[in-house]
Nucleic acid binder design. Structure first.
Length: 159
DNA sequence: GCCAACGTTGGC
DNA sequence: GCCAACGTTGGC
C-alpha cells in the first residue's frame, strides 16, 4: 500500500466538498509527473493526504482513500470542458485520473509552515522551494509523523 | 536540440 | 495582487 499527498484549492474543491459528495474523480491534473503516478502507481486502498493550496493557511487538512486506480480523464476530450486538451483522445488518452473517497477531516489544519519546520520532513517535495507538483508520494514515516501532528494540534488546542 | 517567451502554480 | 519558480511551447 502506498501513501500520497494531493493538492487542491479549497475555493475550487476542498475537503468539505469531498465530504459532501463522498467520492470524486480527481480530474484536471495536467502535469506528466503527477499523471504518471496516478496512471502507474496509485492503487485501490492507497491513502492520501488532502492538501489545501492557494489559501490563507495552506496545509494538510484530512485523509482520503483511492477507490479507483488510474483511468483516462475524459474531461480532456470535451471541447466544452475547461480541462479540454485537443491532444488527448479516447484512442490515445494523454491524461489520467483516479477516484478518491472521503475518509476524515483533521480537527485542525497541519499548516505548511509547521511541516517546513520539521527536519524529518525536509525530503518531502512539498516543503522544497518552488515545488509545484500537485500529487506526490509520501513515505510511511512521513505519513505517521504528519498524522501524529494532526493529533498533537488537537491536544494543544485542548490545553 | 536549444532557448526565449509564455502560462501556471502557489506561497506570501 | 505580486512575483519567483517551474513546465511547456514553438521558432529556429
Amino acid at each position: 500500500m502506498n501513501y500520497w499527498l494531493m493538492k487542491s484549492e479549497p475555493d475550487v474543491f476542498g475537503i468539505d466538498d469531498l465530504k459532501r459528495v463522498g467520492v470524486e474523480p480527481w480530474d484536471g491534473v495536467r502535469n506528466y509527473q503527477a499523471r504518471n503516478m496516478m496512471r502507474d502507481q496509485m492503487q485501490v486502498g492507497d491513502l492520501a493526504f488532502f492538501y489545501h493550496s492557494n489559501t490563507k493557511v495552506p496545509g494538510v487538512v484530512g485523509i482520503m482513500e483511492i477507490v479507483r486506480a488510474g483511468y483516462p480523464d475524459d474531461c480532456a476530450w470535451d471541447p466544452e470542458h475547461k480541462y479540454y486538451d485537443p491532444k488527448s483522445s479516447p484512442d490515445n488518452p494523454r491524461w489520467y485520473r483516479v477516484d478518491v473517497a472521503y475518509k476524515e477531516t483533521f480537527p485542525q489544519v497541519v499548516p505548511l509552515e509547521t511541516l517546513k519546520s520539521m527536519p524529518q520532513l525536509a525530503d518531502m517535495a512539498l516543503v522544497r522551494r518552488g515545488n509545484r507538483l500537485s500529487i506526490m508520494p509520501v513515505t510511511a514515516d512521513e505519513w505517521e509523523i504528519i498524522q501524529q501532528m494532526a493529533k498533537m494540534e488537537t491536544d494543544h488546542d485542548a490545553c
